[in-house]
């Protein structure tokens, strides 16, 4: 059997990143302020984690304007979804192994 730790993703080890990806898996897209509210994180921390996910191409950024105010939305990419699912499988396998 494959080592379940192989499925775990280094980038998603940080819990805020895992939370951002969870929200983007469940929703088509989500904007910065709504993300901040649902996760309960500060501006700075959230922005830096978003940047990390963006750099790894787990999420994509859509910049639009609402009433001339910038409105930035985020979407999970195909690559991000795949890695998130594998990471979730890894977590489940580890918990199951431990409980045997």
């Amino acid at each position: 059997m494959k080592n379940p730790f192989d499925n775990l993703d280094k980038i998603l080890e940080r819990s805020v990143r895992l939370q951002i990806m969870s929200v983007l898996m469940a929703n088509d897209s989500y904007d910065f302020n709504s993300l901040k509210e649902v996760i309960g994180s500060t501006d700075g921390a959230l922005a830096s984690h978003i940047k990390a996910l963006e750099k790894e191409k787990y999420i994509s950024v859509i910049k639009t304007f609402i009433d001339r105010k910038p409105n930035t939305k985020y979407k999970a990419t195909e690559r991000g979804r795949k890695i998130f699912k594998a990471h979730l499988d890894g977590l489940e396998q580890l918990i199951r192994l431990q409980k045997k």
Binding site: Q19, A26, S34, V38, I39, L91, I95, Q98
Partner: peptide, 21 residues
């Protein structure tokens, strides 16, 4: 990470998905 933390990760994924929708 400890196994407790994996369980916490799963719980937080579930709660984020639920609360964001």
């Amino acid at each position: 990470k400890e196994i407790k933390e994996f369980e916490k990760d799963i719980a937080s994924i579930r709660s984020m998905m639920e609360r964001s929708v």
